Computed example of a mutant assay.
Amino acid sequence: MKRLPLLLALGLLSVCGAAELSFDETLKEVHVPPDEKQVATDFVFENKTDKPVTIARYDSTCSCMSVQVKGGKLIYQPGEKGVLRANFDMGNFSGTVDKAVQLWLKGDPASDPSVKLTVRVHIPVIVNVEPKTLRWEVGAKPEPIVVSIVTDYEKPIHVLSAECGSDAFDIEVKTVENGKKYEMVVTPKTTETPSLGVIQITTDCPIPRHATQRAFALVRQPVPGEKK
Rank of each mutant, 00 (worst) to 15 (best):
V138L: 10
G179P: 00
L117W: 08
V119R: 03
V186A: 00
G179Y: 01
Q102I: 07
S114Q: 13
S111I: 11
V176M: 14
V127Q: 00
K106V: 02
V147D: 00
V146L: 07
V159K: 03
T193N: 07
S166E: 00
I171Y: 04
T133H: 11
T187A: 13
E183R: 09
G165V: 06
P144T: 14
Y182C: 04
V150F: 03
V185E: 02
I126W: 08
N128F: 04
E154K: 14
P131A: 13
I126G: 12
D112L: 14
T175G: 08
P144A: 15
K99P: 02
E177D: 14
V125W: 02
L103T: 02
P188S: 01
Y182F: 12
I157E: 02
D98S: 13
A168V: 03
K106F: 10
E177N: 14
V129F: 03
E130L: 08
I145E: 15
K141T: 06
L196P: 06
V127E: 00
S161P: 03
F169C: 02
L160P: 07
T96R: 09
V97T: 13
V159S: 08
T187Q: 11
G139R: 03
K116R: 10
W104I: 04
A140N: 08
K141W: 01
T151W: 01
E192T: 04
I145T: 07
E163F: 09
P156L: 12
T191P: 04
N178I: 07
D112P: 06
V115F: 00
K132C: 06
S166T: 06
V129T: 11
K180E: 02
S195W: 06
I126R: 12
D167L: 10
I171T: 14
A140Q: 10
K106S: 15
F169R: 07
V138H: 13
T190W: 03
K180R: 12
V125S: 05
L134G: 04
K155H: 11
Q102L: 11
G139K: 01
H158C: 05
S166D: 01
V115T: 09
V176Y: 01
I157V: 15
A110L: 15
V147P: 01
Y153F: 09
G107H: 03
P194A: 11
E154W: 13
C164E: 04
D108L: 00
T151Q: 00
D152A: 14
K189G: 00
V186F: 02
E172T: 15
L105H: 06
L117D: 05
K116H: 05
P142F: 05
L117I: 08
I123F: 07
S111A: 13
E137I: 01
V101I: 15
V97L: 14
T193L: 05
K181N: 11
T118W: 12
E130H: 06
R135I: 14
P194K: 13
V121K: 02
Y182K: 08
P144V: 12
N128S: 15
Q102N: 07
A162I: 00
T133I: 12
I157S: 01
E143Q: 12
G107S: 11
P109I: 10
V159W: 00
D167K: 09
D98W: 04
V119Y: 01
N128M: 09
D152C: 02
V159F: 01
E137T: 03
T175Q: 09
V115I: 14
L196E: 13
T96F: 11
E137A: 05
V176L: 14
P113N: 10
P109W: 13
Y182H: 09
V121R: 04
S114H: 10
D167A: 08
K181F: 07
